[in-house]
């Protein structure tokens, strides 16, 4: 796979570390225990478009949100995770 890092340009996927689902948001400190449980343990596993976090470990050290179709590996977008909320 080739991932177009917005900072470094197109690079081989072996430069990146995969971190899974980009959707979970860390709950506020006063959220119930269940919210933290879900944040830590629950992940979707769709067959289709998926927004996931990748870390450009052998590059610029950016955390990226990669929108990838898990069936075809087609990558629709790559953006910085910073400010993704």
């Amino acid at each position: 796979m080739r991932i177009h890092c917005p900072h470094c340009g197109p690079r081989g996927h072996d430069e990146f570390v995969h971190h899974g689902d980009a959707a979970p948001r860390r709950p506020q400190a006063d959220a119930p225990d269940a919210a933290f449980h879900d944040y830590v343990y629950l992940r979707d596993n769709p067959a289709g478009p998926y927004r996931e976090l990748w870390f450009h470990a052998a590059g610029c050290h950016s955390w990226l949100v990669v929108e990838r179709d898990t069936r075809t590996h087609e990558i629709r977008s790559v953006t910085f995770a910073r400010g993704d909320a």
Partner: peptide
């Protein structure tokens, strides 16, 4: 060392930019 540094980048860039 590598895992902690990556974790810190995650905390900073993803959780608390």
């Amino acid at each position: 060392a590598v895992a902690v540094y990556q974790h810190m980048q995650h905390c900073h860039q993803v959780l608390w930019p």
